[in-house]
């Protein structure tokens, strides 16, 4: 897989500190929901930096859209969120990843029969991004597979794609969305803010016996914690796929 030049054609702020970018690449082959791309930046003197970003857009579109959360002391994310402008070039390698993916069809090809396995998505913070691609793909393809999302964020202001998730949950009958707000809730929310805990996760997800395909994505500590709870609760480890974005493992 080689590097391809990509032009930023659209950019907008999702929430304070996060931005979505549409990148146009000649001969982009499309992607499978859950895949990521590598983004390479090159400074004037040839110095380069590479980071991975999940693809946010629906696999039914031929659009490459990423959503980047700024780590204040980071090298690449502040550039993508605050500095890069429409018209700027970045280099892209991908789409990559054949594991943390969801397909509408039970086999690898369209026409292989519909994939009706229930899907449980669990996202923390910007870990929603590849899950959003799955939700968008599921909705846009009118898939009837039962989909559930548990999305944990600190505050309503930091929730990515909030309006779209509310709209899709209303329009897309097999999709259910459950929220966990850990620091502050929206006005009139029935429960006070609380850290995501084992009880909330177990109350929100499909029962282990339903053998849902589980996708957990977020910072490394978030993924480690949630995946351990699921295994403790009787989930088969083989049913759980994880994507760790980074950060330090809890001691």
């Amino acid at each position: 897989m080689t590097w391809a030049p990509g032009r930023i054609t659209e950019a907008w702020t999702e929430t304070p500190g996060t931005r979505s970018l549409v990148i146009d690449i000649p001969h982009w082959p499309g992607h499978i929901a859950g895949q990521h791309v590598d983004v390479r930046l090159t400074a004037e003197d040839g110095y380069t930096a590479v980071r991975s970003y999940s693809i946010a857009s629906s696999s039914t579109s031929k659009r490459l859209e990423i959503t980047v959360d700024k780590l204040a002391d980071g090298e690449v994310s502040p550039y993508l969120v605050d500095v890069a402008e429409v018209g700027d070039m970045v280099e892209i390698r991908g789409p990559a990843g054949g594991w943390f993916i969801w397909r509408q069809h039970a086999g690898a090809r369209a026409g292989d029969g519909e994939n009706m396995r229930p899907v449980q998505l669990i996202g923390g913070g910007s870990g929603i991004v590849p899950l959003m691609s799955m939700i968008r793909s599921h909705g846009d393809a009118h898939s009837a597979a039962p989909f559930r999302l548990l999305y944990s964020v600190r505050t309503p202001e930091r929730a990515l794609f909030r309006d779209e998730l509310v709209r899709r949950a209303a329009e897309d009958a097999p999709l259910e969305v459950t929220w966990n707000f850990s620091r502050a809730t929206p006005a009139g929310w029935p429960t006070p803010p609380e850290r995501l805990d084992r009880e909330h996760v177990m109350a929100s997800v499909f029962a282990p016996a339903e053998r849902a395909a589980v996708y957990v994505c977020g910072s490394t500590p978030f993924v480690e914690t949630v995946a351990n709870w699921l295994v403790d609760a009787g989930y088969d480890a083989a049913d759980i796929k994880t994507e760790r974005f980074g950060g330090v493992v809890p001691a």
């Binding site: 400074a43 004037e44 110095y47 930096a49 550039y79 500095v83 070039m89």
Partner: peptide, 13 residues
């Protein structure tokens, strides 16, 4: 050598 990303200087070591 990559394509120059305008305004990127990096945190080079």
């Amino acid at each position: 050598m990559g394509l120059f990303s305008s305004g990127f200087s990096g945190r080079r070591r």
